[in-house]
Design a protein around this nucleic acid. Structure first.
Length: 884
RNA sequence: GGGCGGUUAGCUCAGCGGUAGAGCAUCGGUCUUACAAACCGGGGGUCGCAGGUUCGAUCCCUGCACCGCCCACCA
């Protein structure tokens, strides 16, 4: 890729990201092959709204599956990750109508046709913003298969599903009380309502009993609805109201006589124990009304304005104005008993946050129970697995209590309901295409239902509609069912559950095998990010500042299953540093193994004798490779990230490269080859997390292929693991660290070379040391030490114990006895404390009896070791400073 | 009202039955020829509270407290 063998000194993400992002797309690196013989792994992207722009939630829920996709691809799977966009009817209406309002226009004034024309133009112009941003993130999507929920094929799929369900009686039309958003001008389904706590008032009203001087008190939070009351209800067992049974009340302000009914739904202990019933404006009252065959008087229309039925005093008023006025009138006329502060939950539109208005209208519904039954079973019997598994509980709870789904919306942008009404005979014709005439009376006067379908109705078909259904395509055969659905918990009901129902219904098979639910991204105070709070972290800004790889790695490192994550910029800065670290480690490797270097990693090196460090890093690498697979298999992104991070930084950079510096000096060393191959492995292992920088560096290595994204992910190499080598290395590391500590605490300047004298403690393996003399020497160089064979008499010594060795640093100058004494005493105190803990356990007979032998043994040998150490330390103290 | 999750080092978070970990911050020392966006060393936690189970609990059980979220037809 590049002639340069030496990379720039600091890593600059921008040009690298630009170059490789473009390269991947232009070369079809992520294009799947429906006819491949490789095992397939498929996912569909949760289609972002066309109104969307990338926020950090997207960044998370696209990065995680991308890591999986890239990992699988490198492991030899035929990976399809299919992108697309959702037409998002309500959201689009919101933004477009807002724009219209600025011109003083409403959509009605514009007309349906013109509105749709503009919507399409708008989609064309702005709809691709988020997909462009997705590309920036490095998401390895197959753009050749991009779909849109309103493209022709998909729309056809939507119509077919509607027609088929209708044919089976699973879609029906009903006159029902539903949540309507007065602002958006459409009904909403139950889950599109957000409940928010309101500090409101509870009004107690007094309704006179007809033909009597008595009255009944009722409580309400919505006095304006009293104009539409058609009953008062009490509990059948409530003794207070037995005398009122069968009587009628006179509705104040209106004068209508309304029955007093008894129903068990009424809570005896709430309010006055009697409740006003408004079947046309309250969900409970609506049910009550159907049960008791009460009249429905509509006093508020869908836009939240009072109707003619509300009476001349109120007609045309907004519902909240009407509330004030009704209360005023009631007060004037003595019907208002009291007003109390009252806090309760009020439904709001999930899009525009307007208080919803229950409203009666004709709507289309999906009869959900039969579909839900199958969908429940698919999760129960494990065909579909939720990760983390506790989300299955959320899913079940909703599915068990699921209500029929209202799918019609009074909007224009979307899939128009394929139903035609005959103006002559009133027949409803449901069909894929407009029928030329009424199938019943033959009249040509047919009118299509003006409404469109709930956006989620079409999203529900995403896993198969995007693959070509209802056609029997190669893609559909190869890639359905998909393997993984990765998404956030807030759309389990909206989307996941419905995809499962529709997939089972129309494909006869589950739409995906696993559902991975990622956490929510919160700010540092654990608050949800929202524009109004002003606590939004903009991923694009982060990319600009820290690079995409750093952003991706941060998200992965914070992605603990089942946990929301608090995104911190500091953390991201840390991973930018990590990228730079990798960059520089690679520079080191390339400088020392490249063709121009004094120690090229050619065939000679490959056949050279591996040093201890060579064998050690290989062994450690083998472990990381295993752990990474395991972690990704289980969606433990944070674990994978943490593991690779520490392997690269601590083991590869801080130890191996440092050791390599002296190993490289040995004749016929294998180190250049090991350096190069370890880097190659590191790049591959890290690529799913940090695709850009790894791809860039990889192309500087000999033997790099077309793209690292298509290279083979390192397969497990158990034969590389070497316990003995790791143990030996660990001992040597301990010795080094110990000497460094001694030096630092005695303020020996880092650059001053001092001698190191080593003697195995009784019981330690002397041979292990002897055989490694030269090696220890090179290790010692790490800390400006030189190994001395002979204990130099008569000079001050700094002493320590590490890994079964007694060590001493002879000092050329006078050392500060106070300093050294302090160090040893501190050390001693620590030892005494630990020894006490351990011996306490060993003194406990129950422990000796009941704990596993291995544990007891471990404690014993640890204790022995500590005691030896303690003895030595005391000896040092006594010897050198005369302290006993 | 029902359910779910959280409470571990100054901050953000891992760990979850056998002597407490990371990143950042902090203290001390280094420009050691890949990297000062670095290197070396150190300090810092009675793991929310109270009981229980266990040889042994941060980890399991019960209760409590506080924080966050989801669901819900007490008007």
């Amino acid at each position: 890729m590049s002639d340069k063998t030496l990379l720039d000194k600091a890593y600059d993400p921008k040009p690298v990201e630009e170059r490789w992002g473009k390269f991947w797309l232009e070369n079809g690196v992520f294009t799947a092959d429906a006819r491949s013989s490789k095992p397939k792994f498929s996912m569909v992207l949760p289609p972002p709204n066309v109104t969307g722009h990338l926020h950090v939630g997207h960044a998370l829920s696209f990065t995680l599956p991308d890591i999986i996709a890239r990992w699988r691809r490198m492991k030899g799977y035929n990976v399809l990750w299919l992108p697309g966009m959702d037409h998002a009817s309500i959201a689009v209406h919101n933004v477009m109508e807002q724009a219209l309002a600025q011109q003083g226009l409403t959509r009605e004034e514009l007309g349906r046709e013109e509105f749709l024309k503009r919507a399409w133009e708008w989609k064309k112009k702005y709809g691709g913003i988020i997909t462009g941003q997705l590309k920036k993130l490095g998401a390895s999507l197959d753009w050749s298969r991009e779909r849109f929920t309103m493209d022709e094929g998909f729309s056809r799929a939507v119509r077919k599903v509607f027609v088929d369900l209708y044919g089976e009686g699973l879609i029906y039309r009903d006159y029902y009380l539903l949540n309507r958003c007065p602002h958006c001008g459409t009904v909403l389904s139950d889950i599109e309502i957000e409940h928010r706590e309101h500090q409101a008032k509870l009004y107690t009203l007094r309704y006179p009993i007809h033909d009597s001087s008595e009255w009944v008190e009722v409580a309400t939070t919505r006095p304006e609805t009293m104009l539409g009351d058609t009953a008062v209800a009490v509990h059948p067992d409530d003794p207070r109201f037995i005398r009122l049974r069968g009587r009628r009340a006179v509705l104040p302000l209106v004068g209508r006589l309304i029955p007093i009914i008894a129903d068990e739904k009424v809570e005896k202990d709430f309010g006055t124990g009697a409740v006003k019933v408004t079947p046309a404006h309250d969900p409970v009252d609506f049910e009550l009304g159907r049960k008791h065959r009460l009249e429905q008087v509509i006093v508020i229309d869908g836009a939240g304005r009072m109707t003619e039925a509300a009476g001349p005093d109120f007609q045309g008023l907004d519902r909240f104005e009407a509330r004030e006025k009704v209360v005023e009138r009631l007060r004037e006329q003595g019907y208002l008993v009291k007003v109390e502060d009252y806090s309760h939950a009020v439904g709001h539109c999930y899009r525009c946050k307007t208080v919803i208005e229950p409203n009666l209208s004709w709507q289309w519904f999906v009869r959900i129970a039969p579909l839900a039954k199958e969908a429940i079973r698919a999760v129960e019997d494990g065909r579909i697995e939720f990760v983390p598994s506790n989300w299955a509980k959320t899913y079940f709870e909703w599915m068990y209590n699921i209500h029929d789904w209202c799918i019609s919306r009074q909007l224009w942008w979307g899939h128009r309901i394929p139903a035609w009404y005959c103006r002559e005979c009133g027949t409803v014709a449901v069909a894929m295409e407009a029928p030329p005439s009424c199938p019943k009376c033959g009249s040509g006067k047919l009118e299509q239902d003006p409404d469109v379908l709930d956006t989620w109705f079409s999203s529900a078909l995403w896993p198969f509609g995007t693959l070509g259904w209802p056609e029997d395509t190669a893609d559909l055969r190869t890639f359905y069912p998909t393997d993984l659905m990765s998404t956030a918990f807030d759309i389990i009901f909206f989307w996941v559950a419905r995809m499962i129902m529709m997939g089972l219904k129309f494909m006869g098979r589950i739409p995906f095998r696993q559902v991975f639910i990622n956490g929510l991204v919160r700010d540092l105070k654990r608050r949800k990010m929202s524009k109004s709070e002003g606590n939004v972290i903009d991923p694009l800004e982060m990319i600009e500042k820290y690079g995409t790889d750093a952003l991706r790695f941060t998200l992965a490192a914070l992605a603990v299953p089942g946990q929301d994550l608090s995104l911190s910029e500091e953390r991201m800065a840390g991973y930018r540093t990590f990228a730079n670290k990798i960059w520089n480690a690679s520079r080191f490797v390339l400088m020392n193994t490249g063709p121009g270097s004094p120690t090229p990693a050619g065939p000679t090196a490959a056949s050279g004798k591996p040093s201890l460090a060579d064998r050690w890093i290989r062994s450690r690498l083998a472990r990381v490779m295993e752990e990474l697979d395991e972690a990704l298999e289980n969606f433990r992104f944070y674990e994978a990230a943490d593991r690779i991070y520490h392997f690269i930084w601590d083991e590869f950079c801080d130890w191996y490269i440092e050791l390599a510096k002296s190993d490289l000096k040995a004749p016929r060393s294998a180190t250049p080859a090991v350096l190069e191959s370890t880097l190659d492995h590191i790049l591959k292992l890290l690529h799913p997390f940090m695709p850009f920088i790894t791809e860039e560096i990889w192309h500087h290595l000999p033997g790099a292929g077309r793209s690292l994204a298509l290279a083979e992910f390192p397969a497990p190499r158990p034969e590389w693991k070497d316990e003995a080598v790791e143990a030996e290395m660990k001992a040597l590391q301990e010795i080094i660290v110990q000497t460094r500590t001694i030096r630092t605490e005695n303020k020996i300047p880092p650059h001053r070379k001092v001698g190191l004298w080593l003697r195995p403690l009784p019981g330690a393996d002397r041979a292990a040391l002897d055989g490694r003399q030269d090696y220890i020497l090179s290790l010692a160089n790490l800390s400006s030490l030189k190994l001395t064979d002979r204990f130099p008499d008569g000079r001050p010594l700094l002493k320590g114990i590490a890994a079964g060795f007694e060590l001493a640093i002879p000092q050329d100058e006078e050392l500060d006895p106070a300093q050294e004494k302090l160090r040893l005493e501190k050390e001693l105190a620590k030892l005494v404390q630990e020894i006490e803990k351990l011996s306490q356990r060993l003194r406990n007979e129950s422990f000796l009896e009941r704990a596993p032998q291995a544990v007891v043994e471990e404690v014993r040998s640890k204790l022995q070791e500590l005691e030896q150490k303690k003895a030595k330390t005391e000896e040092h103290l006594g010897q050198v400073f005369g302290v006993k």
